[in-house]
Amino acid sequence: MSLLTVDELTVTFTQRGKPDVRAVDGVSFTVDQGEVVGLVGESGCGKSVTSLALMRLLSGRNVKIGGSVVFDGIELLKLRSEEMRDLRGSQLAMIFQDPLSSLNPVVPIGVQVTEILTRHRKLRGEAARKEAAVLLEKVGIPDPTRRLREYPHQMSGGMRQRALIAMAVACAPRLLIADEPTTALDVTIQAQILELLKELVDSQGTALLMITHDLGVVAGLCDDINVLYAGKVVEAAARRPLFAAPTHPYSVGLLNSIPRLDAPRGEPLKPIRGSVNDNIAWADGCAFAPRCDHYTIECLQGPPALTEALTGHRYRCVNPVTTHEPPAVIATEDGR
């Protein structure tokens, strides 16, 4: 059985005087023990909201969450908030994009790490401090005992992110959720952090849910990948088949949009046209249709279903990309 099963998760934001916004619109995926699963998409696709929803970090009267999130046999969405709080930090942990604002600026790093050890592992005093130093050492922070006394602003972005990871893995969580953990960092530091995450997954068997916009990061790290668009998973596959044979026109478009370091220079990029503002509602058809090169009238007959191919590749498209030649330009000029 999977460690985490997310089934038809929906998150709706309501606002007085405005139509409801469905940020997550029926997202389903699973994460197995020791597996790295990626949620990939551009801003506004619902990837971060998904992660916050399953950590139960979205609250307030104007948020409605539906569907189910089962972690290790427990339905998270039905837990009492105290029970959830016990799970967070011990079994489930999360790291965020901006390490500076995720740390308390007026408290030394050491105190912030030992706090977690005291809360979840009942370690106190000297024992907690020693363990904290061990943790910092483990995430590659040099001179950990001195670093424990430092404040977040005295550390570099990379060190802060390492400290956050140390706090997240302090209780050896079974699932680590990383929301754009390297986006704010330089590439050489990003490489260090990604290496660290890989090591943690390998050595501790922690499952990792990686949320990112960067297909390059996903390609090197994730076992399974879910591509999100406008609040739905539009394509899901294991890493190799996804990159070898992307099926949803959006995934294809994304891959064609990225300048690749190893591509011959002068090869033109093939961007996706328009922007997310052009989307139509899923109820009317495929939200991506207005930007899609494969758009046909069938795309507007209600929300497309998730189709499963023999290879285990799943895609939400009535008109998938099968050959990997560049797709024909849309019919506005050439009239197909």
């Binding site: 050489t188 990003q190 490489a191 990604l194 290496e195 297909l215 090197g220 990225i258 690749r260 190893d262």
Partner: peptide
Amino acid sequence: MSAVPVPDPLVEETRERILL
């Protein structure tokens, strides 16, 4: 150069990495 992620698992798995 070795730190820039490439959106291709085959490249990612085989290339040399220099971690600073």
